[in-house]
Amino acid sequence: MDFPGYEALPRGRHHLTREQVVASQRERLLQGIIEVVAEKGYVHTSVADVLKRARISRETFYEHFSDKQACFLTAFEEGAALLLEVAAKSAGSTEVPVLERFELILSAYLNGLASDPARARTFLFEVYAAGPAAAARRFEIQRRFVELVNGVLLEDERWHLLPDPEFACRMVVGGVAALVTGKVAEGDLAGLPALQAPIMALVRQLIAR
């Protein structure tokens, strides 16, 4: 079966540099494991499955990664970091009201996941099957997201009045993560953007107290 976007590099002479070849191989392996894990689950995904999807030789795979978990963790870290970067950039100028900035971050997060079902399922659901190392890295990404959100919300004096603003932010971000993971587990990716309204209503209530 052919998979679009996984064209093998041309045999023989070509105009690509060694660095370009290596980068192409690595990107195809990372995308390959994301897609296969989303389809088959982490436990049932083998290195052979990734090789077939990425059209990469086994020898080349081990030039990039020591094993399946190393490949998966790299894909998770880079994908999560990119989503975090997009969310941070979406916050816009500090001249924008705080709650609007938070809503922009939330919208970028929810819509980003909804638009990429393979990454959403792999990074939010299957990550738990990849062992303690993956769970620890997911926690670290969530901690960075808490820092981003709390940094924005702290610009509103009302957020400072909460008994423990950072704890409140951890509760909000943890709740968002749980809601999103539930939608992904149900296969309802299209329903992710609809979470925005009730989440915003809750945050407004927290600030209004």
Rank of each mutant, 00 (worst) to 15 (best):
P97L: 05
G191E: 11
L154V: 01
G174Q: 06
G112S: 07
L192N: 13
R144C: 08
L73G: 05
D49K: 09
S57T: 15
R55M: 08
L110H: 03
E7K: 06
F3N: 11
T181E: 15
Y62R: 09
G79C: 07
L124C: 10
V21R: 14
L113M: 13
D164W: 07
R53L: 05
E157F: 07
I199P: 06
A168I: 07
A194M: 12
R170C: 03
A87T: 09
R144V: 01
A168L: 07
L113W: 14
L104H: 06
R26A: 01
D156S: 03
K183H: 15
L83D: 14
D49R: 07
L29N: 03
T60Y: 00
E95M: 05
K183Y: 13
R58V: 00
G41F: 02
E147Y: 09
W159A: 04
F167W: 10
E155N: 01
Q142P: 01
E166N: 08
E95Q: 11
A201Q: 13
A135G: 01
A88Q: 11
A130K: 00
A70T: 03
T17Y: 07
E7I: 04
E140F: 01
F61Q: 02
P132D: 02
G92K: 03
M200F: 07
H160F: 06
A70H: 10
A190P: 05
A136N: 02
I56H: 04
A70C: 02
P97D: 04
L153K: 09
F72Y: 15
R143T: 08
V47M: 02
G5A: 02
H14F: 04
A194I: 03
Y6F: 15
G182L: 10
L192S: 13
P4E: 14
L29I: 01
H44F: 08
G151V: 05
R55D: 09
E7R: 11
V173H: 05
D49N: 12
A81E: 15
D67N: 13
G32E: 03
A88D: 08
H64D: 05
R18I: 09
A168G: 06
H14I: 07
R13Y: 10
L82H: 15
H160L: 13
L192F: 09
E157Y: 06
